[in-house]
Amino acid sequence: MAGDAEATRRRLLQAATQEFSARGLAGARVERIAAAAGSNKAQIYHYFGSKDGLFAAVFDALVERTTSTVPMDVDDLPGYAGRLFDSYVDHPEVQRIAAWHRLEQTGTDGTTPAAARLRSIEQSNRTKIEAIAAAQADGRLPGHWLPEELLGLVLQIAAVWHSSVPEFDDLLTGSTREHRRQVVVDAVGRLLTP
């Protein structure tokens, strides 16, 4: 029955992704997740331990999918930003769940408690920062930004259209997906000029 267990776990993650994307951690209900997955609440607690554990599993799965389908190429950071932009357009739940994580897992002092920190994103960012630092050390990337600053700027630029308020989006009615993508690629390219 291992196949059944894995299928149930996948259905729960898929249903939870939709629920957390729409309602966040606080607004999500395990009853709705279980019903949407054709499962029950007991299985959520069995597989994930808690609603927080389920949220972390969803976030980890999204990080894993994004990092495996959109690997960073330090020799083409503008292209990487463009591919991230594409991924965010094609999978809007990623940015929504990331926003809920920032809102609901960050303390008033701006830090994330250790219990709420997600190792997948921390490891992904560490690996990227190390790759950027190595490329800076051997001259493939300019060194006028610290590696973590450069990564942060690239990630924020790639997500710029997905993090704006609807009122700003209304101003961009004539802006196509292709144009927005090109703005992202060009902006990251300019970051790399001395």
Results as ranks from 00 to 15, higher is better:
V74S: 08
V74G: 11
D75R: 15
D75T: 14
D75M: 05
D75L: 10
D76A: 09
L77T: 03
P78E: 04
P78G: 06
P78N: 04
G79T: 02
Y80S: 09
Y80G: 04
A81G: 02
A81Q: 01
G82M: 04
G82V: 04
G82Y: 05
R83A: 15
L84T: 03
L84G: 03
L84F: 03
D86E: 13
D86I: 07
S87I: 00
Y88G: 11
V89Y: 14
D90M: 13
H91K: 08
H91G: 05
P92N: 10
P92C: 08
P92W: 07
E93P: 02
V94L: 15
V94H: 03
V94E: 11
R96Y: 10
I97M: 07
A98L: 15
A98T: 12
A99L: 07
A99Q: 14
A99P: 06
W100R: 11
W100E: 10
H101R: 15
R102E: 14
R102V: 13
R102N: 11
E104L: 11
T106G: 10
G107I: 06
T108N: 08
G110W: 01
G110F: 00
T111I: 02
A115K: 09
A115W: 00
A116S: 11
A116V: 00
L118Y: 00
R119I: 01
R119A: 07
R119C: 01
S120H: 01
I121G: 00
I121L: 14
I121Q: 08
E122W: 03
Q123K: 12
S124I: 01
N125V: 14
R126S: 15
R126F: 12
R126D: 15
T127C: 01
K128S: 14
K128H: 15
I129L: 01
I129K: 03
I129Q: 09
A131M: 12
A131L: 11
I132D: 02
A133S: 13
A133L: 09
A133R: 13
A134Y: 01
A134Q: 12
A135S: 00
Q136Y: 01
A137Q: 09
G139L: 05
G139M: 00
R140W: 02
R140S: 06
R140A: 05
L141T: 04
G143A: 08
W145K: 06
L146V: 10
P147S: 08
E148P: 06
E148R: 11
E149F: 06
E149K: 11
E149D: 13
L150H: 04
L151H: 09
L151D: 06
L151F: 13
G152H: 08
L153H: 13
L153I: 14
V154C: 09
V154Y: 03
L155Y: 11
L155C: 12
Q156G: 15
Q156M: 15
Q156V: 12
I157W: 08
I157M: 05
I157K: 02
I157V: 15
I157F: 09
I157Y: 02
A159L: 07
V160A: 15
W161H: 14
